[in-house]
């Protein structure tokens, strides 16, 4: 990996910490009277969205604009892409426009990877098919660190090499060593889960996936995490529980029998939330299916970080854009 962010696997622990610490510094910008830095003035960031995702696009747009980059939004709908233009031709068009970075969301796994072969600028993967969504994992890691550090929350008696409590209120400098994260739901089709497993384990967290076996990838045993099928058994040991969106159309493909059964076995309601330790937090990458994988009172509870995740999305993406574009082009 050189000048792109395509997979969370591209990030070393030091890379990841640098992004999180840069984001921690940039979080202060949002509180200033002028929420804008001149850093990327004259640079062009293209948001290339082949899939509708208003929240991700807006987050990247806000991040780029706060760094004074010029932002061009290119959505597939109604464009030449909808008329059958290939990804390669689109890439060549962006190249001709002088894009310094391309933020790409695409329904095909590997699209960001392919694009990176055809453009000179940096490619940031904003979600490719059922592969990865690395900036989501970064903002999730940032949110975990921030919330647990603020709460001083890693329980006593556990061997945590770099205790988040010593890191100060924003967790700066700390990794997630020993933090137990349980990710629940559709891992098979979930790019968020894939990126989170890679990034959180790089940062030292202990990740457990909980899902019906049909929604876990083949060979998940080779991933750097453990796997469970019983949510109630995992919750009491969790510092963080991350609920993934479950798409109802999965039901028709026989991944699970009914929504009711899914909710009973894998949904997080107030009763289940009570199984969590007092300090534990509840995350969801959004958009949520209230009443499906997460009950409304859980989503709105003080444990929920859903709103923090959105706010942190902008600062983490600022950090990524700054670190990719803020300096000279990488030599190698």
């Amino acid at each position: 990996m050189k000048r792109h962010l395509i997979s969370a696997a591209d990030l070393t622990r030091d890379d990841a910490l640098l992004i999180l610490d840069t984001a921690a510094e940039l979080a202060g910008v949002a509180a200033r009277p002028i929420k804008k830095l001149p850093t990327l003035r004259g640079r062009t960031v293209v948001n290339l969205f082949f899939e509708d995702s208003t929240r991700t696009r807006i987050s990247f747009e806000a991040a780029a604009k706060r760094l004074s980059a010029d932002v061009i939004n290119f959505s597939a709908k109604g464009s030449s892409v909808a008329k059958g233009e290939s990804l390669k031709d689109t890439a060549l068009t962006l190249e001709a426009m002088g894009a310094d970075a391309v933020v790409i969301r695409h329904s095909a796994s590997g699209a960001a990877h392919r694009l990176a072969e055809w453009v000179r600028g940096s490619v940031v993967n904003a979600g490719d098919g059922t592969h990865e969504h690395p900036t989501q994992a970064l903002l999730d890691a940032f949110t975990i660190r921030q919330r647990l550090a603020r709460q001083g929350a890693v329980p006593d008696g556990r061997d945590v090499p770099h205790d988040l409590r010593d890191a100060g209120p924003d967790g700066r400098g700390a990794a997630l060593d020993g933090v137990r994260v349980t990710i629940v739901g559709d891992v098979l089709h979930g790019r968020v889960a894939r990126s989170n497993v890679l990034l959180l384990s790089t940062l030292g967290a202990e990740v457990t996936l909980v899902a019906p076996p049909t929604l876990l990838p083949f060979a998940v045993g080779s991933w750097p995490c453990s796997v469970g099928y019983d949510l109630d058994a995992e919750l009491p040991k969790s510092d963080v529980v991350m609920m993934l969106r479950v798409q109802q159309e999965r039901m028709t493909a026989a991944y699970f029998p009914t929504i009711r059964e899914y909710r009973r076995r894998y949904g997080l309601d107030a009763g289940r939330m009570a199984l969590l330790p007092g300090h534990a937090i509840v995350m969801h990458p959004g958009p949520m299916n209230r009443g499906m994988e997460i009950a409304a009172d859980v989503a709105d509870s003080p444990r929920s970080t859903v709103v923090d995740q959105v706010a942190n999305g902008v600062t983490v993406r600022m950090a990524v854009l700054y670190l990719l574009l803020g300096g000279a082009e990488a030599a190698s």
């Binding site: 202060g28 001149p38 700054y322 574009l325 803020g326 300096g327 000279a328």
Partner: peptide, 21 residues
């Protein structure tokens, strides 16, 4: 007061970590 994000020579060197403001 960290000045990194306001420097005029950012593009001459690799991106650097930020100091604190």
């Amino acid at each position: 007061l960290d000045v990194t994000m306001h420097r005029d020579d950012l593009r001459l060197r690799p991106a650097r970590a930020l100091g604190r403001t």
